[in-house]
Design a protein around this nucleic acid. Structure first.
Length: 757
DNA sequence: AGCACGCCGACT
DNA sequence: GTCGGCGTGCTC
């Protein structure tokens, strides 16, 4: 530290601090997997400028490299530590995080066992950190009359000064020069002569332009909807952190309940965050909100950095009434939050699969508690977690048992493919083929759903049984015909199409398993006169193309829309009279305790895409397991039946929603090293178990992960079950304290995992 | 995580 | 001697 600065610090210390925030020490966290925060001295010239929620640059580590960190607090108490370094620079003019957001991110770091700095870094959009689309601009303000100096102004300068006064707000050099028809020097002279003060501010260079809107009025509610809006409205007005589970079959008008609840929030001058799964973030969904409220900000993944930053700033200033977006929109910087809505709350995309591995539903509940606002969880097929919470009265259940306008539920029939298969290995059964013809001939539209992209999903040798798999992962490769390549859907590696078996060398290779690419080929061959479009992540590389296909489908320019997940959720087309589920069995064989839940939800969601107009809809579900309880319950639209069958199994095996789960994954390039390290780690967890009541926490495993090799790393995993999440947390902390695993291994703890792969 | 330190083997 | 390979331990 320079001597002059030391002296300044000494002089300054005698003076009382000017305001409460003028602490001399800052707590800083970094984007590292560290549990601690670090205390730094604040240089005199930065006292008052360093505030909780701003980013700082600080020397960190043995090399004292300048590292970006987040100030999470300032204090006047000197720290007990001997080592103390000083902050090098402040990076933000204003805090990027409110005290409430700091508390929320701290909770996430503790609950999901990662660094606070990692959470803070993940929660702020890149565009905000980079301040995309903003520039430093100089603003001038006139000096008040009594303080103006002696120095005389020239005629031009006088004119410029008058226009500055007329503006009655800080003005830029450029606009003053324009209005006074003079050069920039003439304006700068106002400052040098002391007639105006200048100030540098960061401003957006170009605000995005929004398309005009057609307004819509609130719709009449049925008694169930009314009861829901009343209950939610009460909690909004009282400002209480209450969670509601809005359980309504597809087409029961959940969105109208959200909209009218949000209207209550808007009346109070507060903001609402609406979370929807990324694939439901369609122009259609967005329009419904924009048609009711003046200020809606939509946070898509396709937003440019400039637009994203601009929206973020507007939200932070409280200028936005409703924020709609996928998972990360939960961290929108709303200054006066009034309500959080999570639509399709059961969707697995609300769980982030990279650090911080948070579940948006649970983080939303935490934000709701911290800010005293209600939370609405909406779904036709609620997650078992939410359902149990409602049953135990931890959250309030609101049911919408009827479809609006009393539309009937679509008729769902299973097609037993065990019988169909004898007539040749085609994607579409005779029943489904006939149904497609009947529907299109009657001027109706068809959706065909298949949850696998590509042409063939298995490339195998009929003589030796070898299945072509990825070099880097233990995953079978998918043949993509248009690309003429084999693709790994886990690591995106590409391989040439083999002319002979890579194991035994025989040239007869079988392409088995049907993907959407092959389905499209079959459909166009079967129905050459029907107009067909495919929607999956291969054909929908760009957002405009996606909108184009959906618009064409809406206009009736497409008869058959086929695709993956993308077409399963949220779409609302009244003319869809038939939905075909090409196979309901994908995912049935994966080793995941939620497999049944996924199957049930998927069929129920896809079925909801039809029967939204006057004609009753029809759904055909092709399956090799027509007696599967989840499939049977879904065909009967019977959520309760599904729950009553699934809950006892979960309870018996100690799975969620009864036990809270943590999955620990150990990775290494060498298979033996991974196996060994996972054993050591699991043993450490078990060694700590004596500290807990017997049976309160259980450790299961280790075993190879279902995807045993991924991106050249062998993977082992084990599970920690507990009725009380706090105990599981404690165990993790104890087990990884002073942990030393072989250098070439890595491990991750996934709290409340959603994928067991 | 990221990075400096240090302790080994292979080289001018 | 010293360059650099990677394990290992710490970060206010």
């Amino acid at each position: 530290m320079a001597r002059s600065q030391q002296r300044k610090l000494f002089d300054e210390a005698k003076l009382p601090p000017e305001d409460e925030d003028a602490g001399l020490y800052a707590q800083v966290v970094f984007n590292r997997p560290l549990r601690e925060s670090f205390t730094y001295a604040i240089p005199v010239d930065m006292v008052g400028k360093i505030l909780a929620g701003k980013r700082v640059l600080a020397p960190f580590g043995r090399g004292n490299n300048r590292t970006t960190g987040f100030c999470v607090g300032v204090s006047e108490e000197p720290p007990t530590t001997q080592k103390l370094k000083s902050i090098a620079a402040v990076l933000d003019e204003a805090p990027l995080l409110t005290p409430s957001m700091l508390r929320l991110t701290k909770w996430i770091a503790d609950y999901y066992a990662c660094g606070w700095g990692q959470v803070l870094d993940a929660v702020l959009p890149h565009a905000v950190k980079q301040r995309s689309g903003t520039r430093w601009t100089v603003f001038l303000q006139p000096v008040p009359e009594e303080k103006r100096p002696e120095a005389k102004l020239t005629a031009k300068q006088q004119r410029a000064f008058e226009s500055l006064i007329d503006l009655k707000r800080p003005a830029t050099i450029k606009e003053l020069a324009q209005s006074a028809r003079c050069g920039a020097d003439c304006i700068k002279a106002l400052v040098t002569k002391g007639w105006a003060t200048s100030e540098r501010r960061r401003v957006h260079s170009r605000p995005p332009v929004l398309a005009p809107i057609v307004w819509d009025r609130p719709r009449a509610l049925n008694p169930h909807q009314k009861a829901a809006v009343d209950a939610i409205g009460g909690a909004i007005r009282d400002g209480i952190a209450k969670t509601f589970l809005l359980h309504g079959v597809t087409g029961s008008g959940k969105t109208e309940v959200y909209l009218q609840s949000i209207a209550e929030v808007v009346k109070l001058g507060r903001e609402t965050i609406v979370l929807v799964p990324e694939i439901s973030l369609t122009p259609q969904t967005i329009e419904r909100f924009r048609q009711r409220f003046d200020e809606v900000a939509v946070l898509h993944s396709h937003l440019s950095d400039v637009d994203r930053h601009w929206h973020w700033q507007r939200i932070a200033r409280g200028e936005v009434q409703v924020v709609i977006g996928a998972r990360s929109a939960l961290f929108a910087p709303c200054p006066n939050l009034g309500l959080i809505v999570i639509d399709e709350e059961h969707e697995t995309t609300f769980k982030q699969e990279t650090t911080p591995r948070y579940q948006a539903r649970d983080v939303a509940a935490q934000r709701s508690r911290l800010e005293n606002v209600p939370l609405i969880l909406g779904s036709a097929t609620p997650s078992l977690e939410s359902w149990l919470a409602a049953r135990q009265r931890r959250i309030e259940l609101l049911s919408l048992p009827e479809r609006v306008e009393n539309l009937p539920m679509p008729r769902v029939t299973t097609v037993d493919m065990r019988h169909e298969y004898r007539s040749g290995a085609r994607a579409l059964s005779g029943v489904l083929r006939r149904a497609v013809i009947e529907t299109v001939d009657a001027k109706g539209q068809v959706i065909l759903f298949l949850n696998r992209r590509g042409f063939s999903t298995t490339i195998l040798c009929p003589s030796c049984g070898h299945v072509e798999s990825c070099e880097h992962c233990e995953i079978s490769l998918t043949f993509h015909k248009k690309l003429d390549r084999l693709l790994c859907h886990f690591c995106d590696a590409e391989f040439p199409v083999p002319s002979r078996c890579s194991s035994c060398g025989l040239p007869s290779i079988r392409y088995a398993g049907i993907g959407t690419e092959r389905l499209e080929e079959e459909v166009t061959a079967l129905f050459p006169n029907y107009r067909c479009a495919r929607m999956d992540s291969d054909t929908m590389r760009s957002a405009p193309h996606y909108d184009k296909v959906l618009t064409a489908f809406r206009r009736g320019e497409i008869d058959i829309l086929l695709g993956t997940q993308m077409i399963a959720k949220g779409l609302d087309f009244p003319n869809v009279h038939l939905v075909g589920v090409v196979t309901a069995d994908t995912g049935r064989n994966i080793p995941d305790f939620r497999a049944s839940e996924r199957t049930f939800q998927l069929i129920a969601q896809v079925a909801g895409r039809t029967g939204r107009g006057q004609t009753p809809g029809r759904v055909l579900v092709q399956t090799f397991n027509p007696d599967d309880p989840a499939i049977l319950a879904a065909t009967k639209h019977d959520y309760h039946r599904f729950v009553n069958e699934e809950m006892p199994t979960r309870k018996e095996f100690g799975y969620p929603p009864f036990d809270s789960l943590m999955r620990v994954i150990v990775r290494a390039k060498d298979e033996e090293v991974a196996r060994h390290a996972s054993k050591i780690l699991a043993a450490r967890f078990r060694a700590c178990l004596s500290e807990f009541p017997p049976g309160a926490v259980r450790v299961l495993g280790p075993a190879p992960a279902p995807v045993a090799k991924l991106r050249d790393h062998y993977r082992m995993h084990f599970q920690v079950h507990s009725r009380q999440p706090a105990l599981r947390q404690k165990l993790l902390e104890m087990a990884i304290k002073d942990l030393q695993l072989p250098g070439d291994t890595e491990f991750t703890a996934d709290v409340d995992p959603i994928s067991m792969m």
